[in-house]
């Protein structure tokens, strides 16, 4: 088993990060292009705790090293990940637990990501992944598979941070524009009311 862990700080509030997190893999993110599809399978709010629980199916397409391909018979470039996430609005945490659906008889990848506020303007991102190759016997082979995946995690994490920063910046801009539009509409209607009152 190999472990990969990583922490990052985003200079955005927890509200902003937790919102933008839902569109982390949109066209604004030009770095995490290995994620090709994200589907929401279920979503519920626990009436007691207020926790929002979401199940998503994430499809990745990323070419595997040639030696691994020849070992597994070629078609391993597309893989599916099952993610369950929990937003706890009272404690202000987002916890995302993911596991691989594809090749789960050979490799087991368990990833946990937590977003929590550092202060009013900053959010902490904590990521930990456990990678275990399950193929019996050959320790050297298991090690190579695990090392390859840890390396992949490290590369994707760096790209993910960069890509998510772009999504956060864009989200802030779009929300600001939206607020501006709403404010303009409100002023317009107030002006109309004043005009109406003046002519009456």
């Amino acid at each position: 088993m190999k472990v990969f862990s990583n922490t990052e700080t985003f200079n955005y509030s927890w509200d902003e990060v937790s919102t933008a997190n839902w569109r982390k893999y949109c066209p604004w993110n030009q770095k995490s292009t290995h994620v090709v599809a994200v589907d929401t399978l279920s979503r519920t709010v626990d009436p007691e705790t207020g926790i929002l629980r979401t199940e998503r199916l994430i499809t990745c397409r990323q070419s595997a090293p040639e030696w691994l391909k020849s070992l597994m018979g070629g078609c391993i470039d597309e893989s599916q990940v099952f993610e369950t996430s929990y937003v706890d609005p009272r404690n202000k945490t987002v916890t995302m637990v993911s596991t691989n659906l594809t090749w789960s008889n050979l490799i087991n990848v368990q990833e946990t990501v937590v977003y929590r506020p550092l202060n009013e303007h900053q959010t902490r991102f904590e990521q930990a992944a456990q990678i275990t190759a399950l193929c019996g016997g050959w320790q050297r082979l298991k090690n190579s598979i695990e090392d390859t995946l840890v390396k992949r995690f490290r590369e994707n994490a760096a790209k993910g941070k960069e890509g998510f920063e772009a999504v956060l910046a864009m989200s802030r801009r779009v929300f600001a524009e939206e607020r501006e539009r709403e404010r303009a509409m409100l002023l317009q209607s107030q002006a109309a009311n004043i005009r109406q009152a003046a002519t009456a």
Binding site: T84, Y86, T95, V97, T99
Partner: peptide, 10 residues
């Protein structure tokens, strides 16, 4: 994931 789920749902 059942166990995990129970913990994270509080």
């Amino acid at each position: 994931y059942k166990e995990n789920d129970a913990t994270l749902m509080g």
